[in-house]
Computed example of a mutant assay.
Amino acid sequence: MAAFLCGTFTGPTTAQEATPAKQLFGAAKLPSAADAEPLGFYAKGCMSGAVALPTDGPTWQAMRLSRNRRWGNPEMIALLEQFSRDAAKLGWGSGILVGDISQPRGGPMLSGHSSHQIGLDADVWFTPKPSQPLSPQERESMPFTSMLDKSKFLTVDPKKWTNTHARVVMQAASYPQVERVFVNPAIKKKLCETWTGDRSLLGKVRPIYGHDEHFHIRISCPPGSASCRKQAAVPKDDDCSSKAFAWWFTKEPWAPPKPDPNKKPVKPRPVTLSDLPKACAAVLASSSRSEDEATFGGSAMAYTDQPAAPSPVKNIEAIINDPPVAAANVPIPVPRPLQ
């Protein structure tokens, strides 16, 4: 990437500078032909050399395929594949349903997220993967399921939330490379009240707006990623008694902003390429991987035999200390550009 910046790349064009960055990155259909690298911050950056989560795996399915947002850093894709196997082992259906990861070259998205820009974020639905694979149409139209009781303020619905939900969220937080797991404040509160496992892992579970229909996994900058900007460390304790967490259950976070009658309205300026790390212009200008490289082994790879979900295990510590190994007849994909 550094050689490319210093060699053939001459900088963004005038048209690129005038175009919102979300349109430029949203138009990219394939990743750049470069080494995998996260560039910038989770909410202000891009990525080179992305790989894609296969649309179908033995213990996962990618959702909302039309968005073309199942691209990520190889570390993120490998983590999702491992987590999907562990979730199935915990009794989470036959695996996980994966929502948005990132666009092929990362960057700001046309809609939905402010983060997910450097390939180190991924959304996992609070709906287990069903035993029968979902059709492409079902993946587009299947509704989300909120874990909240809509009749009560910030309260988890006991008819929907189960101990398995809790184990799956805490399993996601258990991996060393996972830095944060974002959930709705009500879900964090429920875990604070009921979790009896390793309480220090609760410090990784962070409350945030929304996130009642899915949880958001964020991994740390991979080793050697000099251009990846790190985030502040999470609390080492469970963070269940902090003032910052209690704030979510006051009126302040949910109150509409009060307009200042003396302040002239300012039209928001869209984020442009110049607002992102300089290397992001090179990522956009870089050639794409060839069509042959855009599939694993040069051809589509299909999973025709869906394995039965493993037997659930009650003790999550047993899973953490002894990660399950997939059966020999289950194909385990390796990092690839597209599948």
Rank of each mutant, 00 (worst) to 15 (best):
A3C: 13
C6V: 12
G7A: 15
F9W: 15
T14R: 01
A15D: 09
A21I: 13
G26D: 06
A28D: 05
A34K: 03
E37L: 15
P38F: 14
P38Y: 09
G40N: 07
G45E: 03
C46R: 03
C46H: 07
M47L: 15
S48N: 05
S48A: 15
G57N: 03
M63H: 08
R64A: 10
G72F: 01
E75A: 15
M76L: 12
G91Q: 04
W92P: 02
G95K: 02
G95I: 13
I96Y: 02
I96A: 03
V98A: 05
I101D: 01
Q103S: 14
R105K: 09
G106E: 10
G107I: 13
L110V: 15
G112R: 04
H113W: 14
G119Y: 11
L134T: 01
E138T: 05
E140K: 05
E140S: 10
L148I: 10
D149T: 09
L154Q: 09
V156D: 03
D157K: 06
D157E: 05
P158T: 06
K159I: 00
T162N: 00
N163G: 11
N163L: 00
H165E: 08
H165G: 03
V169M: 08
V169T: 09
Q171G: 03
Q171N: 12
Q171E: 14
A172R: 09
A172E: 04
A172T: 15
V178M: 00
E179A: 07
V181F: 13
V181S: 02
N184W: 00
A186H: 04
I187L: 12
I187S: 03
K188M: 08
W195V: 00
D198N: 11
D198E: 10
L201K: 03
L201W: 12
K204P: 05
V205F: 13
Y209D: 04
H211A: 07
D212Q: 07
E213P: 00
S220G: 09
C221D: 06
P222K: 03
S225C: 09
S225T: 12
A226E: 15
A226Q: 14
S227V: 05
R229D: 07
K230V: 11
Q231P: 10
A233D: 15
A233C: 11
V234D: 02
D237P: 08
D239P: 00
C240R: 02
W247M: 08
W248R: 01
E252C: 04
P253C: 04
P257L: 13
K258P: 00
P259R: 08
N262H: 15
N262M: 14
K263N: 12
K263M: 14
V266G: 01
P270V: 10
S274P: 00
K278M: 15
K278W: 13
A281C: 03
L284C: 08
S286Q: 12
S288A: 09
R289L: 14
A294K: 05
F296S: 00
G298W: 05
A300C: 05
T304V: 09
D305H: 11
D305A: 14
D305C: 11
D305Q: 13
A308F: 12
K314H: 07
N315H: 06
N315C: 01
I316S: 02
I316N: 01
E317T: 11
I319G: 03
D322Y: 09
A328H: 14
I332R: 13
I332N: 08
P335I: 11
R336A: 05
